[in-house]
Design a protein around this nucleic acid. Sequence first.
DNA 1: TCATATTAGTAAAACGTTTTAGTGTGGTGA
DNA 2: TCACCACACTAAAACGTTTTACTAATATGA
Lengths: 336, 336
Amino acid sequence: MTTKALSIKDIAKKANVSITTVSFILNGKAVEKNISTAVIERVEKIIKDDGFKPNQVARSLRTGSSKIIGLIVEDISNPFFSAIARLIEDKAYKKDYKIIYSSTENHPGKMKELINLFKSRQVDAYIISPALGTEQDIQGLLDEHKPVVLFDRFLPSLDVSYVGIDHVEASYKATEHFLKLKKKNIALVTIDLDVEQVVNRYDGYKQAILDYNGNQNEALVLKVPFGQEKEETIAQLKELFKEHTEIDAVLFATNYLAISGLTALKEMEKVVDADFSVIAYDDGDVFKLHTPQISALGQPLEEIAERIISLILMQLSSKDVLKTERVILSGELIVR
Amino acid sequence: MTTKALSIKDIAKKANVSITTVSFILNGKAVEKNISTAVIERVEKIIKDDGFKPNQVARSLRTGSSKIIGLIVEDISNPFFSAIARLIEDKAYKKDYKIIYSSTENHPGKMKELINLFKSRQVDAYIISPALGTEQDIQGLLDEHKPVVLFDRFLPSLDVSYVGIDHVEASYKATEHFLKLKKKNIALVTIDLDVEQVVNRYDGYKQAILDYNGNQNEALVLKVPFGQEKEETIAQLKELFKEHTEIDAVLFATNYLAISGLTALKEMEKVVDADFSVIAYDDGDVFKLHTPQISALGQPLEEIAERIISLILMQLSSKDVLKTERVILSGELIVR
DNA sequence: TCATATTAGTAAAACGTTTTAGTGTGGTGA
DNA sequence: TCACCACACTAAAACGTTTTACTAATATGA
């Protein structure tokens, strides 16, 4: 039963033509290369009847390209990333590209390893949600003129294409919403990381309070250490809410912080209501089904995926290096 | 800046040895092949200093294996699958295997396409959560003696390894829990699909009611059409709950059905409480944070991933075809 | 001293494609 | 009739490895 896979040679033999001819036909170069329609049809019939599929590995070796796009995210099991992955995969598939992915798991060395691994597999393009300190690794790809698109997180020191949302605007909108509801003591729960998209969320929050002459109080800004255990975060949050009973609104800067926050509140038996409002970054079933429903800053997942893929495909289909493009989309405040 | 990647030839030239020698060293066959330690050290130093990484594509072409495992699921953005994917990826990575994945999206033809694509990429092994009607495709892989492990869903007609949980037992446990709480009218919300793991959930439910002399009522079993739009499902559920006000407990047979169910209840303003209990299949933050908290049948994700990978690796490392193994784990009823 | 082992390596084929540089035939124009 | 071109196709190199079969030199045993 173990039949060795057919090769182009078998097809050539069967059709009584050369390997070259079969290859031309396979690659749609038949007319251009003056292959007669009779031969084309004969060969195509055999290919179809025998179900011959060219060996992509050999093809990659020869052409240097693989029709594979590498996707590197921090954690594929984060709903935001898995949703994006699914959408990207779907769109890429339609253009005959496959996705090979990996999670970096906040492990600093892993990015370099992954990039090397992907390179040795002759991956054609890279879609990366970059961790801190991976600038050089990504610059390496750019130096080799590989198509690269960053998303979700941006590295300002790199001249590279990017798709993401305007985090200043998004957290401004959320904070503004609180202020219009006459909230006086708005807390921000964010992470302790000096990267653009985190800083931006903080900036939008601060700017809104400033513009509305709100109550500025650094004590209400909690910066959770990056990568900290969930239990620890919950404990910290409980303390915040206990110490600062004046808090009447909280903006959580990531979806998992919001989940930890809601867990903390639940454990404290503190309810979310008109006197204590919450907005979460990224939307999800958890927030929709929560009692009461939780307002959220939704990211336009479909559009993010669409833009990423079209940037990648443009670079892939162009002979020369295109100039980088930064796509900044708007988050949507979903008031519940 | 565009430096062509180094090849084994460059290393050989630089070290003044043959390509063969470098290859032997790279593959740890140096001593076996009587290469002197002096040469080994010299070559290894050059490899390290120059950061040479062998081209995996060429290696695959020659050896016929790729160090890639294909993962095929219905939808990577389903939290159950993305959680498993993450765990599998992590464990595979440690053994130097990478994952290439795809979602079949309930599209019947896509499985065959994907398998062909993966074959043409010389994927070494397959981890599949099979959709209905894909028996022949998977049998094709078995015929070629490719390592295959199914998970989550099983295809009884195939002699293939499998990792999953005992769904009869799980839904029995859930239903039994309801019965011990003196529930009289226990509804089951499941999907209208004639596959083992779905039928099993139904069987466990029925058996428990039988064993406890409970109230058997087919009208309380809702079989939602597979692949139906969420809105439609919610409407159906509302109708069920409206028509049958006697229902005092509901077991949802999948996580997304539970989410639709909770949404329906929320929209009807019907609360989950002592008089109306709910158990969801698969655990998640949604259920933990729900008010009240929702009991769930948790699957041992870590162990499932562990078992899948170890089955795959065993098959991969064995010369001959191993006999198939079916690993049936227990789901855990998390009472909240 | 001669045959034989052992040591330390290498040349070349093979994996399955793509692509460059041909080849041989028949037709056309002058 | 000769030069040239279009047409229809092909031989062989190349991509970067692994692996088989070999060589040449030295060591060993009788």
